Amino acid sequence: MSDHRLLEGITVVEISSSVAAPFAARIFADLGADVIKIEAPGGGDSARKWGPPFWRDDATPFHAFNRGKRSITVDLKDPAQIAMLSDFIAERADIVLQNLRAGLVERYGLDAQTLRARAPGLIYANIGAFGEKGPMRMQPGYEALMQAISGLISLTGEADRDPVRIGAPIADMGTGMWTVIGCLAALHERQRSGEGRVVGTSLYDTSLGWTAMAMAQYQATGKVPSRTGLKGISVVPNGGFHTADGLLVITVGTDVQFRSLCGAVGRAELADDPRFVTNADRRANETALLAILGDIFPTRTRAEWCEILGAAGVAAIPVQNLAEAAESEQTAASEMLQDCPGDELKLIGLPLRFDGERPKPRWPAPKQGEPIHQLKSDAAE
């Protein structure tokens, strides 16, 4: 096994589009699995058209979630092609990932029950909007809708303004991650029993999952948490401050760190002010403390404050835009922004390492694929 391809020898069939299932499949691909993406004739995955911007004729979101795969074209309205796909899955696949509209895989005979009757060791992942139960189980879902209905949007933004959507598809990508976790657990179980499993994930469940801390607060108090913008909810100070050239985020987790902060900003006496001695005191008098600090930080730049506060042991980080994050020394050192063989488009890699090395992509996102007959040739090898 080379390049830490821990899932080499595992075959994954992805019958999906958009983000959640393709992201799960891309994780498998980066970990060394052979991922075969099934696409409809013509346009293929809808994400191919989610532009501009485009890169090599496909929208950039498609590249982000589909590198390292093979693409095969299957007309799911053609029984003969469905039969060929079903045969390939039964004979060769370890995992199937699907996120088609509710009811479609059953109509095509590509559902878990049908396929696992032929291949009991198959691991089959249903990735849906609202999951298998409940009054909304048949409804479609998209990222913004899931953030809205789960309460995530209600937690994000400033208290005196409308709530805002989180700036990343965390419902979709999180669901992809949970799908991979479930499938890996099922693979481990299959080694013991020889039996596969049906893994179920949904965007709604994932979105609710991200509310764990806020939901615990609500369940304990009966009070709906308010939006706090850049401010945290547990320790003070913990949030954003305007400097001479942009925003700086500071988190003070202990009373000792607060004393260090006071010394670093030239206001050592604040540490002994009865209003601010303990975190409980600071939370009770947060408005007064933030007003004092808010007058201090604009006197220097973000870089100057980071150096001063860092030397004092206080956690401080500038709010960076994507260009700054992409060009930072830490991003370069992390190797998270990766080159892909055969392509000049740098993409974010998997946020994990094996033996100190990050998995590397093997090839770019595929063009619209070969016809289904290619799978039949593969199965005959």
Rank of each mutant, 00 (worst) to 15 (best):
W305E: 14
E304Y: 02
T301A: 03
E335H: 12
P318S: 07
A332D: 00
L337P: 05
L309Y: 03
A325G: 13
T301G: 04
G313S: 03
L309K: 05
A333S: 05
L322H: 14
S328F: 07
P341D: 08
Q330N: 08
R302V: 12
A315R: 12
E324N: 05
I317D: 15
L322F: 15
A303V: 08
Q338F: 08
E307K: 13
M336L: 11
D339A: 14
A311D: 15
Q338V: 04
A332G: 04
I308V: 13
V319I: 02
W305M: 13
A312R: 01
T331Y: 00
I317G: 14
E335W: 08
N321E: 04
R302N: 13
S328A: 07
Q320E: 10
V319W: 02
E327A: 13
Q320H: 06
E324Q: 12
V314C: 02
N321A: 07
E324M: 07
A311H: 15
A315M: 11
V319E: 04
I308L: 10
Q320Y: 07
E329L: 01
G310P: 13
L309M: 02
R302H: 07
P318T: 05
G310H: 09
A316G: 02
A316K: 04
I308D: 09
A332L: 00
Q330R: 11
M336D: 06
R302M: 11
Q320P: 03
T331E: 00
L309P: 02
I308A: 11
L337C: 05
E324L: 03
A315E: 12
A303M: 07
E307C: 08
E327N: 13
Q338N: 05
D339P: 11
A303E: 09
L337G: 04
A326E: 10
L309I: 03
A311K: 15
C340N: 06
A333V: 01
E307W: 14
A323E: 14
E335T: 15
N321H: 02
S328G: 05
I308P: 08
D339M: 13
A303S: 12
W305D: 13
R302T: 14
G313T: 01
C340H: 04
Q338K: 07
S334M: 08
T301E: 05
P341W: 15
V319C: 01
A303N: 12
A312T: 03
D339V: 11
W305G: 13
P341Q: 10
A325K: 07
W305I: 10
A303Q: 09
R302S: 14
A316Y: 04
P341M: 14
V319Y: 02
A323N: 12
Q320T: 11
A312P: 03
A311R: 15
S328L: 07
P318A: 06
P318D: 08
A323I: 13
E335P: 12
T331A: 00
L337I: 04
A315P: 06
S334P: 06
Q320D: 10
P318N: 08
I317L: 15
G313R: 02
A303I: 06
A333Q: 00
